[in-house]
Amino acid sequence: MNLFLDAFAWIAAPEQWSGSGSLPQRLGEHLLYTVIAVGVAALIAVPIGWLIGHTGRGREFAVGLSGAARALPSFGLLFLFVMLVGVTLRGPIVIAVLVLLAIPPILAGAYAGFEVIDRRTIDAARAMGMTEGQILWRVEVPLGLPLLFGGLRSATLQVVATAVLAVFVGLGGLGYGIVQGIAVRQFDQMLGSALLIIALALLLDAVFALLERFAVPRGVRAGRTPIVRSASPRRRAVAEPSA
């Protein structure tokens, strides 16, 4: 436990809190990469995911993409892209890689959010005379929101984790402390940085968990039903299992 005390002491030390390379600066960099990457990825992936979910076309594409993306080693992609484009543009390139990694989970979340909606709900909306646009914005989007936030949550975690590695291509972020700590065998710095990264990841995860919860429209639980169960229409009709 001694090592942990050292790590906390390292975090609390005044020299980590001011000047260049301070913890607030590293944290800021890390958050900046994350927010930009997830934001850009959402702008790209959400409309496509909704389109797939609304029309039902391209479902295999969405499933295949999220499967294939999992196989790609993000660590290697980072190096590969920086080498391909050149070190001078490494900032935008790292962001681009993070965007690429964030797209599949967001796409899957946007599309799956529509997929889990009971078809009868949409049929009822159509029977009531809603236009396609109204069905999309007033029925599908609100009901699909919890799973969309789930996708954003996965994407954010993926990006936070990969941004730890950005230090290898000469950018900052909280990974700096770990990698430098390993190089000079300074364990308090390694451990302190790792603990901060974990705290950041857990904090962001908690924020999204809350968003997911509040995104469920009042009186509706369907959005929280795992897709696995929705595959059995008979059981859904009998009792909506609580997730």
Binding site: S66, P105, A161
Partner: peptide, 12 residues
């Protein structure tokens, strides 16, 4: 896609 809603994602 199911896994994606819950636990997929972290890593790197």
């Amino acid at each position: 896609a199911t896994v994606g809603t819950g636990v997929q994602g972290s890593g790197a």
